[in-house]
């Protein structure tokens, strides 16, 4: 295991930021710390980096006890949410910074900087100032700067948070590919479940200072440990008092079995390739159902139509996954 977090607590005055965090992050993986803002995920990342000290507990990085190690000695690459570009230095000087601090020979620094700028597609911007770059380019520069020192682990704080939707999507794919190329243990913080599901090998869900669940994207989506994880990853609705995914509800025009629930369609919305129904059941429950357009057309669904609903799968039971 590359990073071992054990028994970490951190509070700010009365506010508990982290409560007894135990976590193992595998070497070479791409792990997301996912959760709502204010939930403690950024604090955990900063504790791992050494930018904050935990009140208690320990941090091991590649087998070395880093708990008391200053940030300078941990050899981590940290990418800040707002990039923290050194505004007065050119792109190349920014990337060279860590190597200059380590007093590497000039020739080596130059070669390494060129190689990295190539990797992040910024070669032609080497002599620009950060202020002359776009947000996405600045982010890639920050990434190259962090990678230059050949860090043991790469830590990214909301790496795409400040970018617009399109650039965000591009950078996500790019980070995924970059990770396949460089293969450094990577941990990133995000509040965007779609981003975590798409990019990460493993997701750690953090809420109110606690780890809610650890697992692969599939495990988290299909077998959420609790209602919070289920609600946070993907959309949910209630059917017969239980949480279900809206696309896991079968809609039919006649009762499909003893458990079918009768209701009236109160609204039909077409969103791209899918159709979203709002159904008012006889018990007074408002249920959201998602189905494909051909399916909806086959049933000739429209407002006021009586339908029967049943869950496709048994409603999710809390399942504890290894590592949590």
């Amino acid at each position: 295991m590359s990073i071992e977090v054990s028994g970490v607590n951190k509070r700010y005055g009365d506010f508990v930021a982290l409560e007894n965090i135990n976590l193992s992050i595998p070497t070479g993986g791409l792990t997301a710390l996912l959760g709502p803002s204010g939930g403690g995920k950024t604090t955990l990342l900063r504790v791992i980096a050494g930018l904050e000290t935990a009140d208690s507990g320990s941090i091991l990085i590649e087998g070395t006890d880093a708990t008391r190690l200053a940030v300078q000695k941990r050899n981590v690459g940290f990418v800040f949410q707002h990039y923290a570009a050194f505004k007065h230095m050119s792109v190349a000087r920014n990337v060279a910074f860590g190597l200059e601090i380590r007093k590497r020979p000039k020739g080596e620094i130059q070669a390494r900087v060129e190689e990295l700028l190539e990797l992040v597609h910024l070669s032609q911007f080497a002599h620009r100032l950060p202020s002359q770059l776009s947000g996405g380019q600045r982010q890639r520069m920050a990434l190259a700067r962090a990678l230059a020192v050949e860090p043991t682990v790469l830590l990214l704080d909301e790496p795409f948070g400040a970018l617009d939707a399109k650039v965000r999507k591009e950078l996500r794919d790019w980070l995924r590919r970059l990770h396949e190329e460089v293969h450094v243990t990577t941990v990133f913080v995000t509040h965007d479940q779609e981003e975590a599901l798409e990019v990460a090998d493993e997701i750690v869900v953090i809420n109110e200072g606690r780890v809610e669940q650890v697992g692969t994207p599939d495990q988290l989506y299909d077998a959420p440990a609790n209602d919070f994880v289920m609600g946070f990853l993907g959309s949910v609705t209630t059917l017969d008092g239980q949480l279900v995914r809206p696309h896991d509800i079968e809609v039919s025009l006649a009762p499909a079995g003893p458990d079918s629930i009768e209701g009236t369609v109160s609204r039909v919305q077409r969103i791209g390739f899918e159709v979203r129904l709002t159904v008012l059941t006889d018990d007074g429950e408002v249920v959201t159902v998602e189905l494909t357009r051909p399916h909806a057309r086959r049933l000739a669904l429209e407002q006021g139509r009586v339908v029967f609903l049943s869950a496709l799968f048994e409603p999710a039971k809390p399942v504890l996954v290894a590592g949590a």
Partner: peptide, 8 residues
């Protein structure tokens, strides 16, 4: 902080 994380 970025400078510290790079070893400064």
């Amino acid at each position: 902080q970025a400078a510290w994380s790079l070893g400064a």
